[in-house]
Design a protein around this nucleic acid. Structure first.
Length: 422
RNA sequence: GUGGGUGUAGCCCAGAGGCCUAAGGCGUCAGGUUGUGGCCCUGAAGAUCGAGGGUUCAAAUCCCUCCACUCACCCCA
């Protein structure tokens, strides 16, 4: 027996209403803020991610699906969405469009991880990127859009955390201070953190180990070391968020797992949740485009995990609209009626009415059961008598009311009632 | 990568070494109505008891290995 690869899942029909609901909300929100859809390839040159996400990060170090194709190139299944969009921005000359360029996407994301609740090897993200504008007003607008998106979905009890991790001007001095601080307490650090100290000191801040937490609380905070530009940027962000009435918290310990972030970083997560519960995360990446060989171009964006949103929709018992079922089930008895039924189903469909029927001669009981099971609103019954006199018996499966309807009037009759949704 | 839990029909699950030729419920299919669904009744199909090995006269049940799922750590959406 074949099984779906570890950490992947089939999205079954019963799950699809959630997906459609979220997709609709995301697209509506994107439109509201002037974002246009972009789709980039599922795989890219491995170097794109190695260079931007960062050599020392978990994603690059141990989570990428990288393979050699028949041409010998090293390709990687997209482990995150921002770098490909930036690549496309440069490659497709979007610098010559009106700035900022606002793009959104829905994309499968691949990371080789141990699966658990809300974590998969293939998951799906909606991502939003605004490239070509460095002002904090854009950061605030982006965060506002993320927030509105979740409101739109009906998710409550969310928290918004922000931080600023500086830029290449001010970060070196901060990192030096940070290392100094942790170096003094090297012996108290957990094993992982000792390694982090040399490789990526920022990561020390969000170690959850109880032994490391006191040290992190005493650690110097990046927001105290910001250069004038970053500091002004952060102030404007906070002020704009207040204007927009977004309830944010400053979390000086929040860092993100990708190296390209500058200045603003933020996360949205459900209250009273910890661990892998973050439903949206993002920030500014002012150096990314340049790093990829483009002109210096600021950018800011965020991504949200669809599977985690669904998890929360279910946890919060949010009602999502159901998908439409077929409207009419054509029941037939006898070979001749079967032919008429086939024609009738065709006519209904041609008129835009969703219709289904039985493929083999089955008892009326069986056909009506099937009609019931498929969720049809009507059963259009055609047997010897109907055939002879040119009408069908239209049964409303919810009220069990029946009426004779002329062949020629069937389409109009069921159209008036409208296509039913569950 | 590290630790814990769990694997019996499509789904939920009983079963704790011989009475298991593996029970029940949901679902599916059929019948109870010569042309009428949802409720009820009857019947049928559907399980190499996750895989492999071992212990035993005897294994779904005990032991070992592997695999998968799941939860947590790590990290992230």
């Amino acid at each position: 027996m074949f099984q779906a690869p570890r950490g992947t899942q089939d999205i079954l029909p019963q799950e699809q209403p959630y997906w459609l609901f979220i997709q609709n909300a995301a697209e509506a929100t994107a439109r509201l803020y002037g974002y246009e859809r972009i789709d980039t390839p599922v795989f890219e040159e491995a170097g794109l991610f190695v260079r931007t996400v960062g050599v020392g990060t978990d994603i690059v170090e141990k989570e990428m699906y990288t393979f050699k194709d028949l041409g010998g190139g090293q390709l990687t299944l997209r482990p995150e969405g921002t770098a490909p969009v930036c690549r496309a921005y440069i490659e497709r000359g979007m610098a010559s469009l009106v700035q900022p360029v606002k793009l959104f996407y829905q994309a499968p994301i691949f990371r080789y991880e141990r699966p658990q609740a809300g974590r998969f090897r293939q998951h799906h993200q909606f991502g939003f990127e605004a490239i070509g504008e460095g002002d904090a007003a854009l950061d605030a607008e982006l965060i506002d859009m993320a927030w509105r998106f979740f409101q739109e979905l009906g998710l409550n009890k969310l928290t918004l955390q922000i931080n600023s991790i500086g830029c290449p001007v001010c970060r070196p001095a901060y990192l030096a201070k940070l290392k100094e601080h942790y170096d003094e307490h090297r012996e108290e650090l957990c094993e992982d953190c000792k390694i982090r100290l040399d490789k990526n000191a920022l990561r020390l801040l969000d170690c959850k180990k109880t032994s490391c937490q006191p040290l992190s609380e005493l650690a110097p905070r990046s927001i105290d070391f910001l250069c004038v530009e970053c500091s002004d940027h952060f102030s404007k962000l906070k002020s704009n968020l207040r204007i927009l009435r977004l309830p944010f918290e400053i979390n000086p310990g929040m860092v993100r797992g990708l190296d390209y972030y500058t200045k603003t970083v933020f996360e949205i997560q459900p209250e009273e949740e910890r661990g892998q519960s973050t439903i949206a995360g993002g920030g500014r990446y002012d150096g990314l485009i340049e790093q990829l060989g483009g002109k210096h171009t600021p950018g800011v964006g965020f991504a949200t995990g669809i599977e985690r949103i669904i998890l929360n929709l279910k946890k919060q018992n949010v009602n999502v609209p159901g998908l439409p079922k077929p409207s009419v089930f054509v029941v037939w008895m006898g070979e001749e009626a079967g032919k008429a039924a086939a024609r009738m189903v065709g006519d209904l469909r041609a008129a835009g009415v969703s219709a289904v029927t039985a493929f083999t001669a089955r008892s009326m009981k069986a056909q009506l059961r099937q009609a019931d099971g498929t969720g049809c609103h009507f059963a259009a019954i055609i047997g010897a008598e109907e055939l002879e006199q040119g009408f069908i018996t239209l049964r409303d499966l919810r009220t069990a009311q029946q009426e004779p309807v002329d062949f020629s009037k069937l389409v109009d009759r069921v159209k008036i009632t409208g296509i039913e949704t569950l």
